[in-house]
Design a protein around this nucleic acid. Sequence first.
DNA 1: AATGTTGCTGTCAGCGTTGACGACAGCGTT
DNA 2: AACGCTGTCGTCAACGCTGACAGCAACATT
Lengths: 340, 340
Amino acid sequence: MSITMREVAEHAKVSIKTVSRVVNGEGEISHSTRQRVQHAITQLGYRPNLMARALVTQRSYMIGFLVADICNPFFAEVSRGIQDTAKEHGYHLIIANTDDDGDEELAALNALSARLVDGVIKFNRQTTTPQPPDQQNAPDIPTVYINSTPESLATLAAATQSPITNVSADIYKGARLAVEHLVAKGHRHIGMLAGLAPDVNLMRRRRAYFDVLREHGLPFDESHIVHLLPRLSDAQAAAKQLLLANPQFTALFCYNDVLALGAMHACAELGRKIPSDCAIVGFDDVEYAAAVLPPLTTVRIPKRELGRQAALALIQKMANPAAKINLPLLKTELIVRGST
Amino acid sequence: MSITMREVAEHAKVSIKTVSRVVNGEGEISHSTRQRVQHAITQLGYRPNLMARALVTQRSYMIGFLVADICNPFFAEVSRGIQDTAKEHGYHLIIANTDDDGDEELAALNALSARLVDGVIKFNRQTTTPQPPDQQNAPDIPTVYINSTPESLATLAAATQSPITNVSADIYKGARLAVEHLVAKGHRHIGMLAGLAPDVNLMRRRRAYFDVLREHGLPFDESHIVHLLPRLSDAQAAAKQLLLANPQFTALFCYNDVLALGAMHACAELGRKIPSDCAIVGFDDVEYAAAVLPPLTTVRIPKRELGRQAALALIQKMANPAAKINLPLLKTELIVRGST
DNA sequence: AATGTTGCTGTCAGCGTTGACGACAGCGTT
DNA sequence: AACGCTGTCGTCAACGCTGACAGCAACATT
């Protein structure tokens, strides 16, 4: 079926090893034989069997990406960053959707680790269900985490001996920028639409929200925050309720762009004009944030760069698993649009 | 480093072959030895080396997905359909982004075909740049196409001897539903915001648009269509121009949801209320179609189902490459929301 | 007693490639 | 003439696994 090295070797009247050398561009080979081999390769349409190569070299040049759902545009963008970087370095990417489920994640990890991939990039799961700590039969392959919480990183560090690598963006700073922007716009009563999970990414936003308000001597209270799942329908209802309960609010800071959209729907329902009656800031800067009406002011996370950094770190780590890689905290950025 | 079968065999005091049999669940094995082996496997944490297995069985249980850009939510959803189905059948998915570039596509195909994947699922490229016909050194592995044009399918069929498999959705029907819906709502002057590529998917929409208008005795003209790239900014400008040139229009039928969003922006700019002054229908039903204000009426393409059918077809085809697989044309559906 | 039959297990070669090492011709050096 | 060096190429044994086939008890059948 498929052409093997042996056939190329016979056709070019050289040894298999010589063909191997030509293919891999190693060793010293005379011009004439190299040409003969090259000619045989193109003529026969030979392509090396990567499985066989991986078997002997112990490297598959594939990496895995564990993610809740690639349909989430945020994750999709990160995956693009990973993918492009991986391709540059000769790696293929296998994406496994876990639906944020611990068992799925473990299953995927097991499947991938069967010498299929050389390393793994993992988003931390957002759900509250903790991983059973005894289920540490997770295989020990080079791993890079994205946006992991300090706590989960701590448990991980305890479980494995090798140093853990985590790349993340400066959520706290981004959240500060968002709230400071609202304050600068003159808003004095600012509510928050927050996620449900006791997630570090939520905690950072909360802290930034409280910090900025406190620094400016503005009112803040736990009751000014509503917690919910990041679903549009829930967000609309929750935002409506929050605005009705706190009529003094002239601005909402939202956990992400989906919640911000929900808030926009709520404003429409309540007849509140955006941004004059109620300003709205989102988070993430997903693709459609710029496309909605009015365009959403939001905090941009460098999604592709996140993926790129993760891929680069993983490549380093695969080359030298023990290496300690220190990564920069990626900058977040406020994108001011029509909703504020 | 990693545990091999030999070590398991030694630990359980059986032959390697017996371990292999236990792992693969084949052959008849006495209860006691099976237990011994299983015990050794779990204790040692053995996991089979998929590369080695693939080398001998000639099957990698990986499939490739060639797509322009996974960040496009449409493609992302399709990929989920593929992925979930693939997982059910024990396959992994490698996604390769081609950016709709012929060279990239070829490169990816070459890389993947090096015995890395057992088969490939391909979206047809949307760009007009034709593939150089002599570049048919594309490897001959089982392939399933999604949404391919009859023309490209014809050239493909000529190039390869094996029957080609293509799965697609009933675009024409969906487009009819959309335009008929507008007509039923009483609109008599309906414009169209169309894509640029002389793509079969565009042709089907155009044909449906003209057909329905003609059947209802409504005015139609080539000048009622504007062609452009599916970018939000371009769409807004083009829609504005179209509406200014044809003030009689009370409805717009759009090639996809991005263009529909652009039309919504144009209406906002022109002070036209949606849907009272101008109704808008999109196409695809991407995730945010339901989230914008007002929610977008659009034609839903069964994206996951598209992926699922493609994966199933590919699995059939990999089992029997010569088999002729006939696939149903997937049903499209009109989702009526607030924009009409 | 000779001959299947069934149930279980082992032996061996080979999948396509590369790493380690060996060989040998041609050249310059002493 | 003996030596070493360089450039070029080949030999061989793996990598971890599975397919084909053989072996060998134990039991049932003639």
